[in-house]
Structures are given as structure tokens and as C-alpha cells.
Amino acid sequence: MMDIAEIQKLIKALDQSSIGELEYNKEDMKLLLKKNLNDDLQFVRKVSEGSVSNNKMIQEDYSIPHAQVNESNQENVEKLTENLHEIKSPMVGTFYDSSSPDAEPYVEIGKEINEGSAVCIVEAMKLFNEIESDVRGEVVEILVGNGELVEYGQTLFLVNKK
């Protein structure tokens, strides 16, 4: 049986690595560690008890938060994001940040945009659709890379409204 120190070493090793999942087998115990997308560490322990014919499994799930946000930080985040507007994709397709591979991007972080300004192109079935901003403001984040597939309703840009 594994002791808690061994499990903690495995959790620390997974947390500091770039891998997302670790499976460890030792004698009659199977340990599966997974990182969640929100950087929480999920710990799942499965233990076989008894003989092979009597293969009863016990499963325990634990969540270990990577970083916890206190209430005052949460309020600050809400105030900062209160004035942010999301520009979303109106369709499924391929995101392009400029009109051609050698052209300058329509927008960059820190650039002021107006309502109706072109911000990108989404190509769907060989049709190139110019996407326009529906607000006036400053681009604070570009959430999609050039050439990436985007979903309907996926946020492409965050704009600080003016």
C-alpha cells in the first residue's frame, strides 16, 4: 500500500510538469492523477480488494485547488471585467486576423476600434466573412490564433468599452 508521502510526491511532480494525466500502478493499487483545465489537481484512487475472482473496486475522488481566490480579489476581477465586451464569432469557421497572409492584422492588443470596424475574417465553406465590432473601445485581449477553427458564439476578442 502507498503511504501519503508517496502520493504527495506524485501530486507535486504532476503539478510541476506539463503532462495532464499520470497513472501509477503498485501491487494491488491503481492511482490516477489528472489536471483539470482550470489548474485544479484531481486525485482518483482505485484499490482492488480481495482475490481476482472477487474484484471489488473502491474509488475516491478528491479535488485539490491549485490557487484559491478570496472574496476581495473576486470583487476586483468583477469590477475589471464589468466594462469588457466580448466580440463573438457569428459562425463556425477558420479565424484569420488579416485579409491576406502578408497583410497587417486588423486589430492588435491596445488598438482603438470603432463600432463597425473590421476586426477579423471567419472563413466558412470558402466564403470569407469580415467580422465587425459592435462596440467602440480598446482591444485588451485576442483569444484566438490566426488559422484556428472557431465555434459559433466563441469569444474572439475582449474589448474595453469606451
Rank of each mutant, 00 (worst) to 15 (best):
S100E: 13
V119M: 02
E132P: 00
N55C: 08
D61E: 10
I87F: 00
I87R: 00
V144F: 01
M91V: 00
D97L: 14
S117C: 01
Y62I: 09
N114L: 15
I142Y: 15
K56I: 07
P101K: 07
E148C: 02
H85Q: 03
V122G: 02
V122P: 00
A67P: 04
Q42I: 02
A124Y: 01
H66G: 13
L84V: 13
N129P: 04
E49H: 05
D97E: 13
V135A: 13
S98D: 03
Q59V: 14
V69M: 15
K79R: 14
S98T: 09
K46V: 06
F128H: 13
Q154H: 06
G93C: 03
V52S: 05
Y106Q: 08
E49I: 07
Y106I: 04
T94R: 12
P90K: 06
E78N: 15
D61W: 03
N70D: 14
E138G: 04
L80T: 08
K126T: 11
G50V: 06
L37G: 07
D39K: 14
N114H: 09
D97A: 07
N55V: 11
L41C: 07
T94K: 14
Q68E: 11
E112A: 10
K126W: 14
E75S: 08
A124R: 00
E86Y: 02
V47F: 03
S51N: 13
A103Y: 08
S133F: 02
S117T: 00
I121P: 00
I131V: 15
L37N: 13
V44K: 10
V92I: 10
V92D: 09
A67N: 06
L80D: 13
L84W: 15
P105T: 11
G110T: 12
V135Q: 10
P105F: 03
N70S: 11
Q154I: 05
I87H: 01
Q42C: 04
G147P: 11
N129Q: 07
I121N: 00
D61S: 15
G116K: 11
Y62M: 13
E141I: 06
K79V: 07
D39P: 01
I113Q: 00
V140Q: 04
D61M: 09
L149H: 00
Q74I: 09
N83V: 12
